Computed example of a mutant assay.
Amino acid sequence: NAGLEVHPGERRLISSVALEAEDPDNSPQQLFYSLIAVPRFGKLQIKKESAWSELSAGQNFTQDDVEMNRLWYAHNAATNAAGFKGHDSFRFTLSDLDNETPAQSFFINVHTVQKGQLSPQW
């Protein structure tokens, strides 16, 4: 769980470099991330078959989804939203259907341009 860095309005892959779980007794398809809370300033998107859908609290995805590059975060470009402080997150538990971890947070750092700064060139 290394977190993610994005620019305002950017959509980025959440790869196994940023989020990875291993269990010697279970395959990646058998490791479930159950969402407790979704990001407030963006959305989690998952590709199932050929369609993208938005994940909400109570839904889950697997480590296989992460490893197969099917999980993305899309930041809402309106960074002046109430409560926005330059970061976002989602909360989850990890389960193999027999055991479950305590709740964890995945943090997303959103690079913001402060008043008086030059906009980055990318």
Score class of each variant (00 low, 15 high):
108 I>V: 08
47 K>M: 13
98 D>K: 12
116 G>C: 06
44 L>H: 12
55 L>P: 13
72 W>L: 14
103 A>G: 09
78 A>C: 04
44 L>V: 11
81 A>K: 11
52 W>S: 03
105 S>Y: 03
107 F>M: 05
48 K>A: 08
74 A>D: 11
72 W>S: 02
108 I>H: 04
94 L>T: 07
107 F>C: 00
98 D>C: 07
52 W>K: 07
65 D>N: 15
103 A>V: 15
75 H>I: 02
91 R>F: 07
56 S>D: 12
41 F>S: 04
107 F>A: 01
115 K>I: 13
102 P>R: 13
59 Q>K: 09
57 A>W: 06
68 M>R: 15
84 F>R: 08
67 E>D: 07
86 G>I: 06
55 L>R: 01
101 T>W: 02
104 Q>E: 08
75 H>E: 07
108 I>L: 07
83 G>Q: 11
97 L>S: 14
70 R>E: 05
59 Q>S: 13
91 R>M: 06
70 R>D: 00
102 P>H: 07
105 S>A: 12
58 G>F: 12
82 A>K: 13
70 R>S: 05
79 T>D: 11
76 N>Q: 09
75 H>D: 10
103 A>Y: 08
90 F>H: 00
95 S>K: 12
57 A>V: 11
99 N>P: 00
92 F>N: 00
60 N>H: 15
102 P>N: 12
46 I>H: 02
116 G>R: 06
90 F>I: 02
42 G>D: 01
53 S>L: 15
60 N>W: 14
42 G>Q: 00
100 E>Y: 02
105 S>M: 04
99 N>C: 12
110 V>A: 03
96 D>M: 07
78 A>D: 11
80 N>L: 12
110 V>P: 04
95 S>H: 08
118 L>W: 10
111 H>T: 00
68 M>A: 15
50 S>T: 03
90 F>W: 03
112 T>Y: 06
